[in-house]
Design a protein around this nucleic acid. Structure first.
Lengths: 183, 183
DNA sequence: TATTAACTGAACATTATGTTCAGTAACGAA
DNA sequence: TTCGTTACTGAACATAATGTTCAGTTAATA
């Protein structure tokens, strides 16, 4: 990829991230993005068809980093899939999210984020399916399998949202306990 | 209220409902609403400050009908609060929603509906608080009270959404079973 | 260095928003 | 039925955002 393209793309993503910390996706205009990214209008549209496509690709990269199975070796920043202990996968995820490197929490707590939430749930599905054995209680046999998976994902997302909306007052450990207590 | 005002308001709500069945809230324009409602542009803005205010009031009326404690006496259309049997409250709600008189399901399944969902959850909160005894299992003592309430509401909303997204294939009775099985 | 590709910036058409206002018609109270 | 009030009309207007176009410039790569 051309270095110019890469730089422009990064500038757009950076500007977009900063703006997302401030206001809802729906209220962000292309004009604001290009102003902050300091690029021409035509350049933006050379990269992204619309603002929605930008969000789509943004989510793609974000979750790629968060969920991708390739670990980095670094212990502190090791990947959520790297940990061997079963149920600590979700604890890791909560920890990762608490750091909020990429403003994921802002996206989750903001409105008009159905698309974003969709991506998040999509990625959670993979995670849940890999660790379905953690949720093999009595309840799981009383409902259809896909309802059960959907319920786990929803409960995780809802727990996360509750955590964020309440100001991240609990530790990741406590939230993980809550999650496993109710799911 | 002036009959003209009432008629205009109804025309706007009717047009809005019809449009919502077709497309997402975000894609509906004021122009489309006034065309379909057959009213002047200025008239719309005399009634609603913005499109968001319209949605707000729309939701208000919708949930007022669905959740308001005043029963109508009619057996088939009796209100969800009227039924005496405890856990059937939620069965009633599922039944009510299945009829989909007011396109509530369209709103729930569409995107960009954070505001709508917020109202829905707000009304659910009242319902849940009135019937908290139905959810007094072991799990409820392992988490804080407000987390627990939020979890019940979220699970109901998620169950409903799953039901809708899967084409309402199950009966209200079955869905109620699923709901109580996992909550 | 030459060629290719990306960025610039300014102009442009289009679409949506929200306001204004003078004119018209419907309402409700007396 | 009349009369004062209020709501609606429709057309024009300002503003703002979207997305496109293109000739000119600059940076990358081979």
């Amino acid at each position: 990829m051309d270095r110019r393209q890469r730089k422009t793309r990064e500038a757009i993503f950076r500007a977009f991230t900063e703006l997302l910390a401030d206001k809802d996706f729906a209220r962000i205009t292309v004009g604001e993005i290009i102003d902050r990214a300091d690029i021409g209008r035509a350049t933006f549209y050379a990269h992204f068809e619309t603002k929605d496509f930008l969000l789509r690709e943004f989510c793609g990269e974000l979750f790629c980093h968060l969920f991708d199975a390739e670990g980095e070796g670094d212990h502190d920043h090791r990947h959520i899939f790297d940990c061997s202990g079963g149920d600590s996968v979700f604890l890791h995820l909560f920890r990762h999210l608490q750091k909020n490197d990429n403003n994921i929490l802002a996206l989750l707590s903001s409105h008009n984020n159905e698309l974003f939430l969709g991506y998040f749930r999509q990625n959670l599905l993979t995670l849940v399916e890999r660790h379905l054995h953690l949720f093999a209680g009595e309840k799981s046999r009383q409902v259809p399998a896909d309802f059960w998976k959907d319920h786990i994902i929803s409960t995780f997302a809802d727990t996360l949202k509750w955590w964020v909306d309440n100001g991240l007052r609990e530790s990741p450990e406590t939230i993980t306990e809550y999650f496993f207590a109710v799911v």
